[in-house]
Amino acid sequence: MAATIRRRHGTGFDLVMIAPALALFGLFIVWPAVQALVTSLHAEPTRGGGFVGVANYRDMASDPVFWIAMKNNVLFILCNLVFQVGVGTVFAALIDQGIRRGSTVIRTIIFAPLVIAPVAIGVIWAMLLEPNFGLVRQTFNATGLPFPRQGLLGNPDLAFASIVAVGAWNYIGFMMTIMLAAMQGIPRDLYEAARLDGSSPLQTFWNITLPGVRGALILCALIVVVGSFKTFELVYVLTRGGPGNTTQVLGTYIVEAAFQLFRPNYAAGMSVVVLVVAILFGSLQVWSGRRA
């Protein structure tokens, strides 16, 4: 079909057809990106705004907070892959295979957090985790467990883990739903054949289920990688990157640099870095998609 059209109308026709998309892409994606790049090559408005070349990027390289944010972003990606995609897949497999009774109820409960905006999720959990009166503290007290003195979000060692946990609570349902849909596309008789072949549930999950949902798994992983890299709301609402800078991610640090430290051009430079990394991940995905 595509070949027919090309033969009849030539390349010019193709260009006309993609022109609207190209124009919108240029206007709303490329142009702002170019502007961000240009902005990042100039000094802050408070310092005259002259052209300074890559000075902002040099600052970045020696800015410990930037590297904390970068490290946290990478950690965030890894943790979210394990806890959102990994656990979501396991939940999906359990519901797909094991649980007969009440699976609809379980699915609804696990899926429900997804329909809540991340900001609201953050506010809800900030309340639950409130260190003096929150439900979590009360639960610890009721069960006699020791509660960390600075609470969960106020403790540098626990704050990041808490954010990961809340994020997982938010998104596991989504990942589970995608994976479950993919799993339910696997013919039942494959599982019966595997059972006849003597495959244990674990072997079946590994050898039949996982390869069968490879496409969905890659999709979920990409969503998590990109989502985690540009994460902002949850961290901002729960800890604002604190205590100190311990949970700072690039998203929160960009906002802070732009509007609290009043260094919008430096912030633009960091946005460019995020963009470049996102493009790298994106091409990786396209590349692996072509190969598969």
Partner: peptide
């Protein structure tokens, strides 16, 4: 026992 299914149920990957 061994069974041959109507759909063959071959492992696709």
């Amino acid at each position: 026992i061994a069974m041959v299914f109507q759909s063959y149920a071959l492992y696709p990957h």
